[in-house]
Computed example of a mutant assay.
Amino acid sequence: MAGVFGLAEGEVKTGLRRAARLVLDTLYPPHCLACDAAVLEPGTLCGACWVGAAFQTGLSCDKCAAPLPGDPAEAPVLCDDCLRVARPWSHGRAALLYGGTGRQLVLALKYGDRHDIACPAGRWLARQAAPLCRADTLVLPVPLHRARLFHRRYNQSALLALALARELDRPALPDLLLRTRRTGIQDGLSRAARFENQQGAIAPRPRRARRIEGRHVLLVDDVMTSGATLAAAAEACFAAGADDVDVIVLARVLREE
Rank of each mutant, 00 (worst) to 15 (best):
L149N: 00
I202P: 10
Q128E: 13
R252E: 08
C82Q: 02
P30S: 05
D36E: 13
D116I: 11
Q56S: 14
V4A: 09
T26P: 00
A94L: 04
R87A: 15
G3P: 13
D136G: 05
R146P: 00
D243W: 07
G43I: 10
T225Q: 07
K13T: 14
P30Q: 05
R208G: 03
H145M: 02
D187L: 12
N197Y: 04
Y98T: 01
E41F: 14
F195C: 03
G3C: 02
Y154R: 06
V4P: 01
G214W: 11
C49T: 06
H151A: 15
D243M: 09
A147L: 14
R255A: 12
V220R: 00
R134T: 15
D222F: 11
S157H: 03
L33T: 14
C35E: 10
A232I: 05
V245D: 04
E196A: 15
L177G: 11
C61P: 06
G112F: 12
L16W: 08
P204I: 08
V245L: 02
T44A: 12
W124C: 07
C237T: 06
L159W: 15
D187R: 13
V249E: 00
W50D: 03
D81V: 12
A163V: 04
L164N: 02
Q56C: 13
A34W: 06
R18A: 15
A73Q: 04
H31K: 13
A236Q: 03
C49R: 10
V85M: 09
A126R: 00
F5K: 04
